[in-house]
Design a protein around this nucleic acid. Sequence first.
DNA 1: TTGTAGGCGTTATCAA
DNA 2: TTGATAACGCCTACAA
Lengths: 343, 343
Amino acid sequence: MQTKSNDLPPSGIPTLMDVAVEAGVSLATASRVLNGSTRRVADSFRAPVLVAAAKLGYTANLSAQATARGTAMVIALLVADIADPYFGRLAAGVVRGADEVGMIVTISITEADPAREIRLIRELRGMRPHGLILAASRKGEMDAALEAELEAFSRGGGRIVALGPGVKDSRTVTIDNCGGALRLGHTLASLGYRRAIVLGAAKGVRSSDERLDGFTKGFCGDGGQVEAVYHGEYDRDSGYQMVAEAIKDGLEAGTLVFGASDVLAVGALAALREAGRSVEDIAVAGFGDSSVGRDVVPSLTTVGIPLEDVGYQLLRAAVDDQWQCEVPPHLDVVLRESTPRRI
Amino acid sequence: MQTKSNDLPPSGIPTLMDVAVEAGVSLATASRVLNGSTRRVADSFRAPVLVAAAKLGYTANLSAQATARGTAMVIALLVADIADPYFGRLAAGVVRGADEVGMIVTISITEADPAREIRLIRELRGMRPHGLILAASRKGEMDAALEAELEAFSRGGGRIVALGPGVKDSRTVTIDNCGGALRLGHTLASLGYRRAIVLGAAKGVRSSDERLDGFTKGFCGDGGQVEAVYHGEYDRDSGYQMVAEAIKDGLEAGTLVFGASDVLAVGALAALREAGRSVEDIAVAGFGDSSVGRDVVPSLTTVGIPLEDVGYQLLRAAVDDQWQCEVPPHLDVVLRESTPRRI
DNA sequence: TTGTAGGCGTTATCAA
DNA sequence: TTGATAACGCCTACAA
């Protein structure tokens, strides 16, 4: 039919060349009509190409496209643990946004291990992704090796987006931990609470520090007093332990327990229940509004984080050409049964 | 220093060529030592290449590699909703396995929408991924269009892995819903329960049907009796509604409520609590062992699914050359407070 | 064992 | 506007 003989894709998958031949146009023309180009092509050429592509079931080879363009339509997302619903919700927002702009999201798990994170970035870099989203909660300072790796990525034209400040060469999206916790402290003080103990992750974990600080500001600024600060890990058992210890230390009736994360608060609830102390006696509040807070008994007062929105913002930061730092989303206090009114 | 002048990577990112020049060897040699090849190269050549690569911070361009090889070191994972911890845990297993073999995982969300799923597969196909993992719970039969899309992928040399049977040209990994539910029914009957009502998702959702069937077999085979079957959605509110209705229909003391999923059971628990009925009166059991079951009060009896292992198996099925169907992992019954002994 | 050269599927430059 | 043709970065027969 044409000069070239192959009519059916020889190797299984039709290529742009197959389409061009089938449509009787040049490779360049086929490329222009099928894959976004600024240049216009006459309808008399455009139509047959479209027809041929549809008939052959053509799909652009993204790898080839990426090699030719020098960058792939890929966003690499790094989280600490995708089994954790916190990161799951975040990832959902990222993927939704990526879908809107025709990007593909790869996902990698750092396990909160800096060395691992570096290795992953190095591997990922090989894909020449359009953007790199760092959402693994980082403890402490940036490693020099990490910085070098990021610098290399950025020098290659990739965009770096970080959840939380402190990453060089990056656009940053923030969660207003401090503000949310402050409002929580304020609200609870206004409910009549005057004494509190607070539970955080290890010292130096930023989100924990911010939440503890914010809570303290809000609570104390309104007449409350923080009587003890415990540090552990961000997990349920740790919350349990810390409160068990607090009980041993002697916990006055009417005290409020604030956990810097919902899992901490849930652990606290369990410890209190086991010790036979009710919410009328010792109240509990958490942070994050993970789904468990709704189903636990008593249901948990907490601060909601619109994680999916945050994920979406992270993605926009990665793809928008003229992006500018938005104000972090407002975090709402969610009052439930675990903090009954005291006055 | 060499014939070619460029010593520093001109465009930002060093290429294999840069490494070869720096090391004073041919492109082919550099390729062989850096990127896996069966051929051996003398140490006197290997060393300088390694040094040069390290010095330049070389990373293979995965896209170029993929175009050259015709297939990318990528596994495309499709789930219904990554914000759902169920899929989150599954994804964690997939990613862990992928990491072991140096593969990258892309993640896409079907929202349980078949049309969307087809579109996604079509897009993904362009990446020439090594494998495609279909883990979005499918309701009903396979669409012909989907089948065509999968066939095209498979014809191009890609491997298809599905969670649950019914997908053509695919390797299948199964969750033993029926067996797990059967054991649960059996166990509860042996605890003294004799009457039950069961809560499922919509008729036709396979996992729900299997769990309901299995439970019924186990429970009735052991002297129990299923008195009513309710169908709704796989979510908490639906569980709440169905039980609220059941209460209206009249729920005898001593009855057991089995929800085909933990979220259903948690909703059931809430409805019972609101109606002032305790676990001593009406017991509840779920399926899946999602984390909420541990923290809810009373804690929830359920069947554990090792979802991360399942994810890992899915990945192995995608990458192992001589894979063979393994027996599905054993699901353990997890007895907790929501089903106190009746005898 | 090493190097040369052609090919992978696209894009982009530059004449026509 | 269209169409050759040279990149893009890498792999791999094939020849040395």
